[in-house]
């Protein structure tokens, strides 16, 4: 794989569809460009789903391995971003199950943000704005796990009810219900906070 700055430099301007097509042909530099482009979003999602940055990196790596293996099955190369995020979703859920089975570490949501890096390097950032985000994080961490997963998969990954249902192995009707309950709780908390 050529992940050199030179290769990155050129590929950064190439649209997703083209990169995904090239990657499916075995072009590893194109695949790496996709990984770099969508890596932060994948990492952010995995972190919100698994509750830890270390797990998030494992998930991103596993996602990329799986994606590389299955690229040929991607029908619409332009949809590669959503496809990667769906893999992140299912690998995150697998990761949680694995950990749950392996060692009972208790409530995963309690560890959310334990490894949170310093927020907002931008000094201009509105303090009120960032504390609203903190309030949302806290409210999210208090949600029942299934509700939180539905919410993250919907709001972060923009997945359909059917896709979330597949990822979580529950019915689309359950997704609809859990998502609604998650939103109602979160909206109320945020209204009170405001």
């Amino acid at each position: 794989m050529t992940g050199s700055p030179a290769a990155q430099h050129q590929l950064d301007l190439v649209p997703d569809a083209l990169l995904a097509g090239r990657a499916a042909d075995g072009d590893t530099a194109a695949f790496e460009a996709l990984a770099r482009r969508h890596g932060p979003l994948m990492r952010a999602t995995a972190r919100r789903l698994t509750g830890s940055l270390a797990d998030a990196d494992d998930v991103v790596q596993e996602t990329l391995v799986q994606a590389w293996k299955q690229l040929e099955s991607l029908r619409d190369p332009a949809a590669v971003k959503g496809w990667l995020l769906r893999i992140v979703g299912s690998r995150s859920i697998d990761h949680l199950r694995k950990r749950r089975n392996h060692a009972d570490l208790g409530d995963v949501e309690n560890t959310v943000d334990a490894t949170s890096p310093p927020k907002n390097k931008d000094p201009e950032t509105n303090a009120v704005n960032s504390s609203r985000i903190e309030a949302l994080k806290a409210a999210l961490a208090k949600l029942p796990e299934e509700q939180r997963r539905c919410w993250v998969l919907k709001e972060f990954n923009d997945q359909s009810y059917e896709e979330i249902a597949l990822t979580l192995n529950i019915s689309p009707a359950s997704v609809r219900g859990r998502l609604a309950r998650a939103r109602i709780t979160l909206a109320r908390t945020m209204e009170e906070w405001r």
Binding site: D94, N101, A103
Partner: peptide, 16 residues
């Protein structure tokens, strides 16, 4: 190799 382990992910979900 890792990808072989990933292919057997269903198993490792069980065993951890």
């Amino acid at each position: 190799p890792l990808w072989q382990s990933i292919a057997g992910a269903a198993l490792s979900v069980v065993t951890g």
